[in-house]
Design a protein around this nucleic acid. Structure first.
Lengths: 247, 247
DNA sequence: GCACGTTATTCTCATTCAGAGAACTACTCG
DNA sequence: CGAGTAGTTCTCTGAATGAGAATAACGTGC
């Protein structure tokens, strides 16, 4: 066979090697604020600096590599990992972005519900959920990757039901609204939000239950919902007042 | 220095090498139909099969590599290349997708206005604009990449002014509508489309001119517009009737 | 137990937007 | 010149949105 001859003679080392890493922008919400998972690097380059969790891709698929790194950093059980939404964010391969060699990084974006505080992983001293307001200097071009991840997250809340990935299995409309408030950094109108969520087909479905108690500062018991079967929100739930970002 | 010692001792060949390619889903509109640029492979693997244009990433940036490949395949002048919108689509790295070795492909999506028929590039017998209706079997996982590119294109027309990348410098509202018709495969209402385009701030701006003649089958001269300064369409121009795709 | 502040939920009302259809007009073609 | 086509503008109707308010259920502190 022509083709198999070619493959036998093919030398995979003929090109400059490139390393491929999978890094993760993992977002969650704690205390009503958006947090990102950061690790402190235990090895050069950028030893001691904060960075996105990630690691080299070996034999596995890109997304598997990302899931593996995330599970390592957060000591997540497989069952927990199921509840985390993971999607590809983008790929960053500018020459010189890693001083060691040419590294192409495939970034993934993860939306997680509440998770316990992580333990340190293999190549990191520490991994912590960090509020976004306390932005730190990040290693490599991770600040740019984080920015891209935030913009993607903000945008995805508009036209997908992914906000439900940030809350528990059963949730109230107010908890869902808190997700939007945190990610968009805007206070949404409770009444209109309530109407909107219930009017979008497939966004949430009722469980028939309510919370056991009212809120910590009073108020009636809230009805509980679970995620519906919609893949897209239609009509979308648009961010208010983006006049400035439009041009 | 600790860090420079580390870098000096670092062996870039310690990992299995991975090749990185940049492949392109280049779309344009001809005769009112959406076309994609395909090449016929001149070398194994998949010799003789149709594939997306692309090639290995060498010293350059990923996007530069994509632009270089696109320019090669289409024999585009730098001035023409300026008018082509290029954005990253996604990265495909499943083990085994290339029989030669582990190949990670960063796919780019290009929107081009009318371009001349391409000549064959270096590693391809032929490159042709192919109507999407005549879908062929594609090499590797390029069918999936193409599908993802189409979905991205359809979606981007909704909330960005990228439809203007498919038409010339000056265009009529009807030409713009033809872009939407072709990409969405729907006949939009001419009156409502006209109202909508003119009412979205920054989508198009008037040139004050009109076409020299009416259409080939009659009708009045149309006013000419150029691209406005909006980065996003607000409110967006949503696809009609996606009820089926929502869940 | 009670007054009060808080919050879930529902309504109202005014405004904007989208879909359908049509009018009006300027053109090309035969 | 007459018929047909297409660019542009209007009208009408129903849906969606934003702002504000009403109602009612609950926790807290006295």
């Amino acid at each position: 066979m022509d083709e198999s001859d070619f493959l036998a003679a093919y030398n995979p080392r003929a090109f400059d090697p490139m390393a491929v890493t999978a890094d993760i922008v993992a977002l969650t919400i704690r205390d009503g604020r958006l947090h990102v998972l950061l690790v402190r690097r235990g090895e050069p380059p950028f030893r001691g600096a904060w960075a996105l969790p990630g690691g080299f891709v070996r034999e596995d698929d890109l997304e598997e590599a990302a899931a593996r790194e995330l599970a390592e950093e957060t000591s997540l059980s497989p069952a927990d990992l199921d509840r985390v939404h993971l999607e590809q964010l983008g790929t960053y391969g500018k020459p010189g972005r890693d001083p060691r060699m040419r590294v192409v990084t495939v970034a993934y974006l993860a939306f997680a519900p509440w998770l316990p505080d992580p333990k340190a992983g293999s190549d990191a001293d520490a991994a912590v959920w960090t509020p976004l307001t306390a932005t730190r200097e990040l290693a490599f071009d991770h600040a740019k990757i984080l920015d891209d991840g935030l913009e993607r997250a903000r945008s995805k809340l508009e036209y997908t039901p992914l906000a439900t990935s940030f809350v528990g299995e059963e949730f109230t409309i107010s908890e869902l609204r808190a997700v939007y408030d945190a990610v968009w950094e805007e206070q949404l109108h409770p009444g209109n939000f309530h109407r909107k969520v219930l009017s979008v087909p497939g966004f949430v479905e009722s469980t028939g239950l309510t919370t056991e108690r009212g809120g910590p500062r009073g108020g009636p018991r809230a009805r509980l919902y679970r995620k519906g079967d919609a893949k897209y929100l239609h009509p979308a739930l648009l961010r208010p007042s983006r006049e400035d970002e439009i041009r």
